[in-house]
Design a binder for these strands. Structure first.
Lengths: 251, 251
DNA sequence: TTTCAAATGATAGCAATACTATCATATTGA
DNA sequence: TCAATATGATAGTATTGCTATCATTTGAAA
């Protein structure tokens, strides 16, 4: 795998410790996002990175509804006005975080399905990546990917469930999510070129993975996974759902 | 069908015009909800019914985020304090509306699947009812069921995507949704008693029906229905997904 | 090393939101 | 008819979601 290649929105940076020894070398992932998502790029300053890190922590802890820029500023040790210089409002910050997440997921999928040529195996890997808790492969200094995953499950859909979704869509805020859907849709078509609903199945896999996880942990009677709360069962459920549907369509 | 039977949360009332002529007879549906959902029962006063009617209109028009009790009160011609006498806050009002909706859907399903004994046909009917725009069979005077359906699609998940979901669940706020899931899960098991994920499939059908509709109308590239925006295609997608999965599991 | 623009900090203020409280009046039902 | 209950009218308060201004620090170019 060529790490220097820019992959969609993703760029890999080599970060070396001052004395270059292999064990001190870190590979850092850098996600490049659409400029319209922010007023000032949070990846390019210490304050900006703190804003991302602490908003993920705060939203994870207290939820998006009770989250606001005043609390965030206090948490960071800066002022409300300081945060407003980076993001217009908290919804834009959520859009940024969500876009970052989907870009990161797409990168992970590319990385983890690399050199897998069987589309069925590839799709299984995708389902597993979408439906199980992240274990960091490549670290990013200022993002807690595990907390982020939880946030996307509980708050992610609020990014688009608004009256201004059409305007936001025109501004390309959902591009990473849409790119990911296309990518998964293509794998589905590789499995069965005659399957009629690749994009709908793709978005359904993503959404089911998330809300089955949410239900399992919060409203367990809406699932069959309530007892042991085992994510791998969500994977099995999804695999059965997806592959029986794709295969049936072959006939 | 015995209309006098109380069905889960649902009660049917006969309303007669003063002169009893068949064409003046109306059958009115009355949904009885858990008392904890409100401070004062909105079904039992004119003001209460206005609150429900106008909040559905306002949320439908401007979305839940921009909705508040001041605007609602102005719309109705009462005062903010007046609304607070019925509902603690706007989230509780949303919970009420959502609970009402799911009770109503369960009633519709019971009504429309009555006398269908083939579980596959029954499940098809359920999918069709969940995934297509409501056409009122039985009218309720103070609820616009069609606007309500749109609200549930765009705002419904916000009812449970909160940090207090566990507390709300203990207070039984989600009972109608859970009852419906059980009911659909039972039909799935009738189709195939050995299917392993009846509840997860049930909640997935409901959620997919809704967000595929939302995506189709707002982020069409996430679906395969963007061009003609035809709800019946969502039904076909869901049927293929559901029945291939259930049937495969039979083997 | 200066220097000048950009980023940050500190403070203030304002309109809207999310309530709570109080008292007067209307209604209605026992 | 009278007493409880529902509604109306008004006021007030803490918090939220911003915007504006000016002073200070930082950092990169000259």
């Amino acid at each position: 795998m060529d790490f220097s290649t820019s992959l969609f929105n993703t760029v890999i940076r080599y970060i070396y410790a001052k004395e270059i020894k292999p064990e001190h070398m870190e590979i850092q992932l850098h996600i490049k996002l659409n400029e319209i998502l922010f007023l000032r790029n949070p990846e390019q300053s210490e304050l900006g990175k703190k804003i991302i890190l602490h908003s993920i922590q705060l939203i994870h802890k207290n939820g998006f509804e009770s989250f606001n820029f005043k609390k965030l500023a206090e948490d960071i040790g800066t002022t409300e006005a300081g945060v407003y210089r980076y993001f217009e409002n908290k919804h834009r910050l959520l859009l940024y975080i969500v876009a970052w997440y989907w870009s990161w997921v797409e990168y992970r999928i590319s990385f983890q399905t690399n050199n897998i040529y069987d589309p069925v195996k590839k799709l299984k890997k995708v389902i597993q990546l979408l439906a199980t808790t992240v274990e960091d492969d490549i670290k990013t200094s200022h993002v807690d990917e595990s907390a982020l995953h939880q946030i996307i499950i509980s708050e992610g859909s609020k990014a688009y469930l608004t009256k201004h979704v059409t305007a936001d869509n025109k501004d390309q805020f959902f591009k990473p999510y849409k790119d990911l859907c296309v990518k998964i849709g293509d794998i589905i078509l590789e499995c069965n070129p005659r399957y009629r609903y690749p994009k709908s199945l793709s978005s359904s896999i993503i959404e089911i993975a998330h809300f089955q996880n949410f239900f399992m942990n919060n409203l367990p009677s809406l699932t069959d996974f309530g007892k042991d709360k085992d994510e791998s069962k969500i994977v099995l459920f999804l695999e059965e759902l997806v592959f029986s549907s794709i295969k049936k369509a072959i006939k």
